[in-house]
Write a protein that binds this DNA or RNA. Structure first.
Lengths: 186, 186
DNA sequence: GTCTATACCTGGATAGAC
DNA sequence: GTCTATCCAGGTATAGAC
């Protein structure tokens, strides 16, 4: 019989991810991590020497998860893959989180260089995957739209990203109505 | 003959607006204002007792400008008014700025209460104006879309807002292609 | 209105004991 | 791997002179 042991490092990553996606990079501190986890500041530094170090690890982990997810989807229909992608954002909404690009993009210029690279890489993965999906689905005839696939991908990602942000401010489930409408547009 | 004198208060507001829209609220300091303007920290505090005070003044000024702009547009055709609205975002792109909602929304929960209110108010103004424009344009037959006007407004605002953010990260003029495509969708 | 000086706090980070 | 203790930098904010 196996039991699940989440080690400290994972707990830090989990909490750090939530903090970035609810407060942004500059508005959270090591204290926001150490206190809830019942440890001291220095202990967090043991696992992640610097804040940018932690920030990058969080971005990379999320990106790896995304790549593994789309890999698992690869045998599914194009419609189902798109639906799964949209589901990521409705889940984010329920968890009151924005996506990484939404959380970190506005202050991109203020981020440490390593995080800028990580974010750029992650955004490239998402855009190129969705572009490919739309392109294939279009030629298969399962999707229907007039834009170029790459531009359509940006339209979709943008609407989702900003829907999460607007939901924060307005208190309305903006992203859910956006998802509903996006489905009619492909 | 009149000459234009921009007083210190206006200079602070201008610079503060740029800082918020390029770096976000938490990543700029009074130093970022006082040094470029050749004054001391304390002098900035004379005009704005607290940072949140300054933040709110910036939001309110931008909102007032928007209201005055749309008022000036009111005699124009619906298409022209929409085109003017889109132009705000292509100008923002050229200036390397994101919009206020994009800059402040992701970290909404970390903002001082007065700024939260100001941002919420501003977002309401924009959404309701655009909703009205789309609704009127639809019944006049100058616009053509199948979504509900309010949802269409959110789709448009979202795409623009996030286009600016994605442009930051990717280095591509995402918002420009988004604008091009949005025009075909109304 | 702007200055100098300073108080106060928070945050990131490191050294060294356990 | 976590602790205590500490350092240092930076940021907001205020008091009081000019």
């Amino acid at each position: 019989m196996y039991i699940w042991v989440m080690d400290t490092r994972d707990k830090i990553l989990d909490l750090g991810e939530e903090l970035i996606r609810t407060r942004g990079y500059h508005a959270f501190s090591f204290k926001d991590i150490s206190v809830p986890l019942g440890m001291k500041n220095a202990a967090v530094h043991y696992h992640f020497p610097s804040k940018s170090n932690l920030g990058l690890a969080i971005i990379d982990r999320t990106n790896d998860r995304f790549l593994s997810e789309i890999h698992q989807w690869s045998s599914l229909s194009k419609e189902k893959q798109l639906a799964n992608f949209l589901k990521i954002y409705s889940r984010s909404y329920r968890q009151n989180k924005v996506c990484f690009m939404g959380a970190l993009g506005p202050a991109y210029d203020t981020l440490p260089a390593n995080m800028q690279e990580g974010l750029q890489k992650a955004s490239h993965e998402i855009r190129s995957w969705l572009t490919g999906l739309l392109k294939d689905g279009l030629s298969e005839g399962v999707f229907e739209f007039t834009e170029k696939p790459g531009e359509k991908a940006d339209l979709i990602i943008s609407a989702l990203l900003a829907g999460l942000i607007m939901g924060r401010v307005t208190g309305e489930p903006v992203v859910l109505s956006i998802i509903k409408n996006l489905k009619k547009q492909v």
